[in-house]
Design a protein around this nucleic acid. Structure first.
Lengths: 195, 195
DNA sequence: ACAGAACTAGGCCGATCGGTCTAGTTGGCT
DNA sequence: AGCCAACTAGACCGATCGGCCTAGTTCTGT
């Protein structure tokens, strides 16, 4: 009924609707706590549409993680495009995190989706490696710009900023507001000024 | 059979064995992914022994979180007891985290159990508030010693160190080794020297 | 106009979920 | 010796899990 009622505009393919629904539910309730039925109900899609597009729930989860990674990169690219120098591009990484927080905020900000996912994945799961790779790439981006800046021991500063970033994201997620994350950014600018 | 065979030494009450088993499985596999049956099997205990000691799985989870908090406090107190001045007591917080990492390491280090739990708990869950309170207490401890140290803007430095701590714990958990956490501590000492 | 792909609802599967209940055994205290 | 509390194994409950299948409908490209 409801699906038929919105039938006119509902032309977005099932795969996209599934990924969007999964993103919302996985983020808000956790991956393990979200059943396949909850995802298809929120997507307004038949169960077989899920299994025609994804081999399993695990495959959907893997895609969810990949999309989150891509999403953050896009956020960062946008910020980096409007950044003047290397210093601004370092801060663009913080701004991308802030943008991400603002996106999710109206439905309850709960921190970094990738970090949260990794935290609930069992020890050997591939998803944990994917999240680790993501975080290492973020630090690599920091390092790249820090190198261009020519400060002393760029690697150490990159790690320092990365820890501020991840710690800030985690704490902000717990608090439910990006305030701590903004403080992390402020501290980062301070460190950049000192270097 | 197996239970009767080890009957001689098996005198630890069911409640303790359940909490110990839950700690192991919840930490290694995640809370939502760990069924009640897995917990009682690992504890070597009957199902009714669980429900005679805990009202529900959720109550067991709440107790699990409380024990984790208490456990860290104990680790910290031990480190603080052997610390000379205020500066050493700040670093004792980092050492307590490292001790925690070393404890869990042989069974696969996966970061802070409380942070991981919060990450997989749904938006409004009480457990998230408990974890937030824990992390705020950790920062309060940092602040207390920083105040005694009389450095400028102790609150800001306390937050800075807290972010290093949580970011380090998260990244270390992803990597599977406490190396990043040790770097966080090194950076912290640097900051203390500069202040 | 028509073929084929995408999608639909919904029944079905075996397994497992959290939780309850019964009936019986064990161990420590007096 | 006798009692009570802690504990046991395991059957059982309804609900939900991830996943599969069928039959029919709607959309789209040619």
């Amino acid at each position: 009924m409801t699906a038929a009622a919105e039938g006119r505009t509902r032309r977005r393919p099932a795969r996209e609707r599934l990924l969007a629904a999964a993103a919302r539910r996985f983020y808000a309730d956790g991956i393990a706590a979200t059943g396949i039925d909850a995802v298809i109900a929120e997507a307004g899609v038949a169960k077989m549409s899920l299994y025609n597009n994804f081999a399993s729930k695990d495959a959907l989860v893997a895609e969810y993680l990949a999309v989150r990674h891509e999403e953050w990169l896009e956020l960062y690219r946008r910020r980096a495009a409007g950044a003047a120098g290397a210093r601004e591009r370092v801060l663009a990484v913080f701004d991308a995190y802030l943008d991400h927080a603002a996106l999710a905020y109206d439905r309850g900000f709960r921190g970094c989706g990738l970090l949260n996912a990794a935290a609930e994945l069992p020890a050997g799961h591939d998803g944990r490696a994917a999240v680790r790779a993501h975080k290492e790439q973020v630090e690599a981006i920091l390092l790249e710009h820090l190198d261009a800046l020519g400060t002393g021991d760029a690697a150490r500063l990159a790690r320092h900023l990365s820890l501020l970033l991840e710690g800030g994201m985690m704490r902000a997620g717990l608090e439910g507001t990006p305030a701590v994350l903004e403080q992390a950014r402020a501290i980062a600018t301070e460190l950049l000024d000192a270097a």
